[in-house]
Structures are given as structure tokens and as C-alpha cells.
């Protein structure tokens, strides 16, 4: 299991490097924001731990906080990226 996961990790790492290697400077901030939204998917971890175990009130409350945090990350992240990119488009139009 450890080696299998390590293989996935290394391959995904190379893909991550490869796909963004040609990003122009103007897209640095939206790309940062977009990748930021993607890692909000950590919210899945919260579902799994809260949904399949978690005894004790404190644990449950902390997991609810974790899920809320993850949701803020993923929802807010994609929305704010979209707003940023919308701004780019308007700028291009008025520039032409």
C-alpha cells in the first residue's frame, strides 16, 4: 500500500509540474487561486472521519469546523477564481 501510494504521488507530482509549465505571468494569481480551490477537496477527509467514527463531542465539533473550513476553501476558491478571470475578460474587451 505504501509503495503503491508513493507511485501515485510521484506520478501526480510530474503531471502537476508538466501541465502548468507554460503559464504566462498574467495568469499567475488566478492559477494560484484555482489550485488553492482544488486542495479544498480535503473536505472529503472530514466527511470520512466524522461520518465513519468520531466519538466525543469535542471531536465532533472540531470535525464540523474542519468540514466548514474545507467547504469555505473549495466553494470560495472556485468563486473567487471565476471573479478574477471575469475581470480579465472585461479588461481585454475594453482594451481592444
Amino acid at each position: 500500500m505504501l509503495v503503491q501510494n508513493l507511485a501515485i504521488l510521484v506520478l501526480a507530482g510530474f503531471v502537476g509540474f508538466a501541465v502548468i509549465s507554460k503559464v504566462p505571468n498574467t495568469l499567475h494569481t488566478p492559477l494560484m487561486s484555482g489550485t488553492n480551490a482544488i486542495h479544498g477537496i480535503v473536505v472529503l477527509g472530514g466527511f470520512i472521519v466524522l461520518g465513519l467514527g468520531a466519538e466525543g463531542v469535542l471531536n465532533k465539533i472540531l470535525l464540523v469546523v474542519a468540514i466548514a473550513f474545507g467547504t469555505i476553501n473549495v466553494v470560495g476558491g472556485f468563486l473567487v477564481t471565476d471573479r478574477m478571470l471575469g475581470m480579465f475578460k472585461d479588461k481585454d474587451r475594453s482594451g481592444k
Binding site: L9, A12, G13, G16, F17, V19, T35, I38, H39, I41
Partner: peptide
């Protein structure tokens, strides 16, 4: 997903 973001980030 985490590795993609870690590497590209």
C-alpha cells in the same frame, strides 16, 4: 489532488 497542487504550486 494534493500532489497536483503541491507540485504545480
Amino acid at each position: 489532488a494534493g500532489t497536483l497542487v503541491g507540485a504545480s504550486g
